[in-house]
Design a protein around this nucleic acid. Structure first.
Lengths: 192, 192
DNA sequence: CCTCCGCTAGAACGAACGCTCTATCCAGAA
DNA sequence: TTCTGGATAGAGCGTTCGTTCTAGCGGAGG
């Protein structure tokens, strides 16, 4: 049955994404992935003949969509763009706390570990960042900000969310995220 | 001779710090460290009987000092606090480019990989962030900003530098860092 | 002189790594 | 019914992992 086969592939990608998020690239073994996904090693290499790198790249794409969804949810939560950003930081803080500070950005760790040594993964990571920036940029332009300002602010918004989530995770505190929301809101309001 | 012994210890810590910065915790082996430091495995375990974790914690402390030095250099480069921050982003961008986008923040990767599973390392990481925040906070207070504003802004400044360096490294572009400098300067000026 | 001890040196351990390979299963086409 | 090919299953390859262990080095104190 088709559903069974796609089901297995899906399970592998999801398990990989979650494990990469929590343990990074080098810290996650293929055998652990197959165990966690309830698939066999044979299945993993059947669907991802490119091995660990191809699998990680696919998992990064999965994480990209996941984070993009959260971003869109937050940005759609308020009319005012500044409030929309703080809605994002609130969502991130809730998710982070709910996972006991385990689930930060789904791709950061893997991205850092593979810098300059795994082109397939690097490309997926680059596309994710571009994707997120575009989402924020669109949202700011819709609110009436200038094209250049929107693009530049979007870069910094994504940066700051990323950095704040990282700090929040490491210090086990929601404060960095909430402060990031506050300051980004103020910054954006200053551009209106 | 005392100088020889401290020399070996120093070499091990420095090599570990650089390798952790570039390859992360799981991606760096003790044998690679001993090779790179031109020390033997016996020496490594002699100085760090706590093994890889103790060694990594010490390397994190080394990276802490390194980043703190860069921060202080940037913050001392101008009278205006906003300009001081952009000086920091400029220094970071230069160092990152000079290393061909290899040397980002010396501790981020290791910090993320060991979240929730290596208390010794987590503590060193937490102390580093607190240390950096305190440096920025002091600088802002010296410029006449209020105590609360300084503390909160310092958190966001460190976050944003962290996130911008990460994005710059991953996208191989100085732009995120320069935009972070521009926007942080504007934010701080708005608080004066 | 010898003894001691901080330090160097690297062989060896069991476990885990990414990956290859052959064997088997089973739904649908012929 | 037989055949076919995607999917499953896991033993086994060579390598590397973190760590332990014993042996030897060489300068300082008696």
């Amino acid at each position: 049955m088709k559903t069974t086969t796609t089901g297995t592939r899906e399970r592998i990608v999801r398990a990989t994404s979650r494990l990469l998020q929590r343990q990074g690239y080098e810290g996650t073994g293929i055998k652990q992935i197959s165990r966690e996904a309830e698939a066999t090693l044979g299945s993993v290499y059947h669907f991802f003949p490119g091995g660990k790198q191809e699998l990680a790249a696919e998992a990064i794409r999965h994480g990209d969509q996941e984070f993009a969804g959260l971003l869109r949810a937050g940005l759609g939560a308020a009319d005012d763009p500044a409030e929309a950003i703080t809605a994002c930081t609130r969502l991130l803080a809730e998710a982070l706390r709910a996972s006991d500070w385990q689930d930060g950005c789904p791709i950061t760790s893997t991205a850092l570990e593979t810098v300059g040594r795994a082109p397939v993964i690097e490309q997926a990571v680059g596309e994710a960042f571009t994707h997120w920036r575009a989402i924020v940029e669109d949202r700011l332009r819709t609110s009436g900000l200038g094209a250049d300002d929107s693009r530049e602010l979007a870069v910094t918004v994504v940066n700051t969310l990323e950095g704040a989530e990282l700090t929040a995770q490491i210090t086990r505190s929601e404060e960095p995220l909430h402060l990031a929301g506050k300051h980004l809101a103020r910054l954006i309001t200053g551009y209106r």
